[in-house]
Design a protein around this nucleic acid. Structure first.
Length: 266
DNA sequence: ACCCAGGCATTGG
DNA sequence: CCAATGCATGGG
């Protein structure tokens, strides 16, 4: 069944992140389709004229896929705003139809951030996939991401065995066992979200900003501490990330994604 | 055998 | 308040 998305939309480019750094067992690339477990069932997403083909498409999968594919982003407004910019103008033309994906679940977003802290994304993907394999549940060929309950019941040693540092194992289990209302964060404004995230052990400013950017899809999220973004901004603009921030108002999030994707797809 | 990679908490000044 | 340190794995 067709799930419409605003044109232009480039499905393959938009999902590049899920296969660029290795295999993502929770967002599994299958040659021409993206597989994702929704409610314990495998959902298959493929490119289609006017949007994507989703199978099965129902009241459960529809909102999940819309979030996953970044439907909330207003690309038209971003492109119009970016056109005069010497860097983002050409970039939005070259990457036309790139719609950043979002992580639908807050716990998944935060645990994924912990796995990606400090190490290369190749390493992060490998460790994260071993965790998904062990603590997630297969739905066809793809896996549902490990639930908070399942990781709350895990031991730090189990996580250490599959490649987590002792410290990161503490962070993941601690987050799972905490009483923080992760769903409730969506009701708060950007700065309140930042404060709540940073108050959790193992999550700093970088993780908070990516949570705003890739889970909540907040337009002004700007992960200025991100090493890859710093390098991309330096190469493409020749300035620092902090001095660029105000210039990108109010499209910092989409700008960051276009700069990162543009820098690694020259 | 190195060195670095899309951080963070801890420790020491 | 800022600088130094340890962390585990995958690629080059």
């Amino acid at each position: 069944m067709l799930l419409p998305l605003p044109a232009p939309y480039d499905f393959v480019l938009s999902t590049e992140r899920y296969r660029r750094f290795g295999v993502d067992l929770a967002n599994l690339w299958d040659g021409n389709a993206l597989l994702r477990a929704v409610g314990g069932r495998e959902v298959r997403i493929r490119a289609a004229p006017g949007g994507v083909d989703v199978e099965p498409l129902d009241d459960l999968s529809r909102p999940e896929v819309l979030t996953l594919l970044g439907a909330p982003f207003d690309l038209d407004a971003f492109y119009a705003w970016a056109a005069p910019d010497e860097v983002l103008g050409p970039l939005t033309v070259r990457l036309a139809g790139y719609r950043p994906t979002l992580t639908p679940d807050p716990f998944e977003a935060l645990v994924s951030s912990i796995t990606a802290q400090q190490v290369s994304l190749f390493s992060a993907f490998a460790i994260r996939s071993r965790m998904i394999e062990r603590f997630g549940v297969p739905a066809g060929r793809v896996y549902s991401f490990p639930t908070r309950e399942r990781l709350a019941a895990a031991s730090e040693d189990e996580l250490f065995t599959i490649g987590f540092s002792r410290r990161k194992a503490e962070y993941v289990v601690g987050l799972a066992r905490s009483d923080v209302d992760l769903e409730g964060l969506a009701e708060l404004d950007d700065d309140e979200v930042r404060a709540r995230i940073v108050a959790i052990r193992g999550l700093g400013a970088w993780s908070a900003e990516w949570f705003l950017a890739r889970h909540l899809g907040r337009p002004r999220a700007w992960p200025s501490g991100d090493l890859a973004l710093r390098k991309a901004v330096d190469v493409l603009y020749g300035v620092g990330v902090e001095e660029l921030r105000s210039r990108l108002e109010p499209f910092q999030n989409l700008s960051a994604h276009y700069l990162l994707t543009g820098a690694r797809n020259p």
